[in-house]
């Protein structure tokens, strides 16, 4: 089963390689990974998506937690949370297809962030399925390149 794991860690040199080294050294999988700083300057948040059975996920969270620079490990599966991924797509857009492409982008509430005579760069954010869907739909039109951010996740605010 897929798990999105959020890791707060001290922003020190080499800390990312401690996490990724752990995954390669122990044969755990990383499906996607994204890191950036948080409200606190010296703390980074790393979101990773991994898969495995319960025992493996338990080991993964425990082993990450054991790293000295790690502050907190959250398996998002255990929390009500929101997940988003962003994709940048450079898609062929010539006179004949421009309107069609714009319509699709509109449906997905995407944005055109760069225009050139023969292509658009499109930005779409959403769940992994939504991101995958727009890629699939645009593919026949002529997707030239995509770059995905990997998933980031945050827990929802308390209901009351």
């Amino acid at each position: 089963m897929k798990h999105t794991i959020s890791v707060l860690l001290q922003n020190k040199p080499g800390v990312l390689s401690r996490v990724t080294g752990l995954f390669s050294g122990r044969g755990f999988n990383i499906d996607s990974l994204s890191v950036a700083e948080t409200l606190e300057k010296d703390v980074s948040c790393l979101t990773l998506v991994t898969h495995g059975d319960e025992a493996i996920i338990e080991q993964i969270t425990k082993q990450i937690h054991k790293l000295i620079d790690v502050i907190k490990v959250t398996d998002m599966v255990e929390h009500d949370h929101v997940e988003r991924e962003m994709v940048l797509i450079r898609v062929k857009a010539e006179s004949g297809s421009r309107a069609e492409v714009l319509r699709v982008i509109d449906i997905f509430r995407g944005k055109v962030v760069d225009v050139s005579p023969k292509s658009y760069v499109v930005e779409v954010t959403g769940s992994k399925t939504k991101v995958q869907a727009i890629i699939d739909i645009l593919r026949p039109v002529g997707v030239q390149e995509i770059v995905r951010s990997g998933i980031i996740a945050i827990t929802r605010g308390k209901k009351s």
Partner: peptide, 16 residues
């Protein structure tokens, strides 16, 4: 050596 010993130390440091 910090890179080399990362998986075989409890923790390691390069003092910069």
């Amino acid at each position: 050596i910090v890179g080399i010993t990362r998986p075989v130390t409890k923790h390691n440091y390069l003092v910069k």
